[in-house]
Nucleic acid binder design. Structure first.
Length: 426
RNA sequence: GGAGGGGUGGCUGAGUGGACGAAAGCGGCGGUCUUGAAAACCGUUGGGGCGCAAGCCCCCGUGGGUUCGAAUCCCACCCCCUCCGCCA
């Protein structure tokens, strides 16, 4: 949530920001109006309640003969308060509903643009694979089926479309990547390893901003208030929900491996081949709780930590910055890391690194105390993948493929693969 | 899933209808004393909302209810602990 005070006091600036991200402009006017109405009603309720409290204290010592009439008066005052308070409450919850649907404000340095096509490629890194002249690199679904390390048909048989089964060295490669990435972030970048629940309560998803707007992308338990996480960002951000942290605890840096579940309902029909976009996938996530004044720098560091995975795997990648029109609902600034996959000839998004500023912190009530005795303030949250497994697998398999159909194991992963140098048909 | 016990401020823990946003102790912060530190002593110390301010309102697991008035009484739910059952 953005600060309601911004809407009250800087209405025009908020309107401009909403224009840039392509949000419905009426939301701001609606919020402003509801806020004014709520404050009026609430102030009235509080004035009446003050009177009720004051008079109630007198009842005990009131002379017997007037006592009953005072009580009668107060009872009717109480009834009035109840009904006016109900109005105030419903206005308040209407306001909250509107606020929950207002997206974050973009940072001033985010390029203005309407959509995906106006994102900016900041830089391209690494070297592209050097295949023999005349060799046409193949897509991973062909390579992996032939090697017997991914079984698409049986995945569909068990669970339907957009599911697959990793087999043998395919499963092992994923496991190696997970372990190696976590080790890298813990030992080289100073993150704390976490294994959180992959099923969470609804309020967690409000905290991160997945709800109320994006329910159609999520799986949920039909009977209980429990939802499958679409990313580890959800449990990691809720780890400190409704807490007040002390300044010296910050930054808190977490890394977690979890499965992720997405209904992908909106994307039906696209990317159905291969393992690029499944309903279930695995991810190693990076997440930070930081002081507001450090969030710019911390985002750059997190991006660099995620990039380190690409560098050490020696994969070609590029960094793009999202324009205002392609920012997520919650992000104030966002970079994507995309790895080049030589077989399907695509830049694959393997990480989105975002600064949410206090947007999620406000929703999830995560604060910190700048100094002892000082008032708590909302902190900033930052998050990015480090990295998403299936797409890194695609890139490794397609970029390290050999003309004989085998796949060379990147040097850095060999210790995690029992020394295996090459994945061959088995 | 069944039975019993319990959820109060950073922590321990009192509080069974009005003077309680809450005793006391510990911890934290500030000060006195001291060359410095410790001890001792004094003061201070939860969160939120509205308001220029004075101030007012709300919060004792959560949500309802009773009452002029609820931390305190009633109902429902949640969580934790112990025992039994089941189970990877």
């Amino acid at each position: 949530m953005i600060d309601i005070k911004l809407i009250r006091e800087n209405t025009e600036a908020v309107r401009e920001a909403m224009e840039k991200v392509g949000a419905e402009p009426g939301l701001i006017d609606r919020a402003k109006e509801l806020d004014e109405r709520w404050r009026e009603k609430n102030a009235e309720v509080e004035r009446m309640r003050a009177r009720l409290n004051r008079e109630s204290k007198k009842v005990k010592s009131a002379p017997k003969d007037v006592r009953q009439s005072i009580i009668d008066d107060l009872r009717s005052l109480g009834d009035k308060i109840d009904s006016l308070n109900a109005e105030a409450d419903s206005t308040g919850s209407e306001l909250r509903d509107v606020m929950l649907n207002i997206p974050n404000m973009p940072d001033p340095d985010v390029p203005v643009g309407k959509g995906e096509e106006e994102n900016v490629v900041l830089r391209t890194e690494g070297t592209f694979p050097d295949f023999e002249p005349g060799f046409q690199p193949r897509p991973h679904w062909d390579i992996c089926t032939e090697l017997g390390i991914i079984d698409f048909e049986r995945g569909a048989k068990i669970s339907g479309s957009r599911f697959y089964v990793l087999m043998r060295n395919g499963a092992k490669l994923q496991r190696a990547l997970i372990s190696w990435m976590i080790d890298l972030h813990v030992s080289q970048h100073g993150y704390t390893e976490v294994y959180p629940p992959a099923i969470v309560q609804e309020k967690c998803l409000y905290g991160t901003g997945n709800l109320p707007k994006f329910a159609e992308n999520l799986y949920k338990d039909a009977e209980e208030d429990l939802w499958l996480i679409p990313t580890a960002e959800v449990p990691l951000t809720n780890l400190h929900r409704e807490e007040i942290l002390s300044a010296e605890d910050l930054p808190l840096c977490y890394t977690a491996y979890t499965p992720c579940f997405r209904r992908e309902k909106m994307k039906a029909g696209t990317d159905v081949r291969g393992i690029k976009r499944g309903h279930q996938f695995d991810k190693v996530e990076l997440m930070k709780y930081v002081k507001p004044e450090n969030s710019n720098a911390e985002l750059e560091k997190l991006l660099d930590n995620a990039e380190e995975v690409c560098r050490r795997l020696e994969l070609p990648y590029r960094i793009t910055q999202m324009c205002t029109g392609d920012l997520s609902f919650v992000a104030a600034k966002k970079y994507d890391i995309e790895i080049w996959a030589a077989g399907c000839e695509e830049w694959l998004e393997v990480s989105s690194c975002s600064n949410f500023r206090d947007f999620q912190a406000r929703r999830a009530e995560i604060r910190y105390r700048p100094a002892p005795q000082e008032k708590p303030e909302y902190l900033h949250t930052i998050n990015g993948s480090g990295l998403a497994l299936p797409r890194v697998m695609i890139a490794v398999i397609e970029n390290y493929q050999q003309p004989d159909g085998s796949v060379t194991v990147p040097d850095i992963l060999r210790p995690y693969m029992g020394g295996l140098e090459k994945i061959c048909e088995t």
